[in-house]
Design a protein around this nucleic acid. Structure first.
Lengths: 108, 108
DNA sequence: CGGTATCCAATTTGATACTG
DNA sequence: CAGTATCAAATTGGATACCG
């Protein structure tokens, strides 16, 4: 949000702006988990290995602010909150899948 | 290197292992800079906005250890060091370009 | 030029406890 | 369940000094 911007031309910083949106340590894993459909907070917490509550909240807020996920609250008892990818978020699916394939082939 | 591994199944952690390789704050920007060919250390320092020497060294070492870049030293005066993408690294080109296009369309 | 080493400040992340 | 609050630990950033 209020991060220091690139000092030089905006052109050269595009990638870093993008990474500010989806380059967080956990963002891609969360997006990946959401490819299979809408998920509750606790489901994401289980699906994204090693993440903790604070970081999941933080990343989800960032992603929501950047229009990648939608947060829906249901006034049930106990409360239910569901997260879904937006169209913009779903456009990342082929890219992340390719990255995943790259990793499976080359990383391990 | 000696980061704590995922505790549960390896399957679910693949993405996070991949991000450990290319998900660093600067890795993709460095790789992006190397798409246009081999670069000297100081060129990279100029091409990757806002990075500092320490982090550039650190990321390059990590990338070299993971077989993404090759480091070549030439015993000239003053010394010359050049970094090049490996085949493995170049395979990331279409993926990062797609990511870039996604960002241009949706972020900037 | 291409680093390494060091010190310190700032930011980010992790772990745990707690709440509507 | 879905978070918030808080503090500790780790990482990063910045400046400076030094070296082969």
């Amino acid at each position: 949000m209020d991060k220091k911007k690139c000092s030089s031309s905006k052109e050269k910083c595009a990638l870093q702006e993008i990474l500010g949106v989806i380059g967080g340590k956990w963002s891609m894993s969360i997006i990946y988990a959401l490819f299979t459909g809408k998920k509750r907070f606790s489901e994401l917490e289980r699906m994204v290995p090693n993440i903790n509550t604070r970081m999941l909240v933080k990343e989800l807020k960032n992603m929501e602010a950047n229009g990648i996920v939608v947060r829906e609250v249901f006034a049930t008892v106990p409360p239910t909150v569901e997260y879904t990818l937006t169209t913009k978020g779903r456009k990342l699916e082929p890219i992340i899948n390719e990255l995943y394939k790259w990793g499976v082939e080359y990383v391990g």
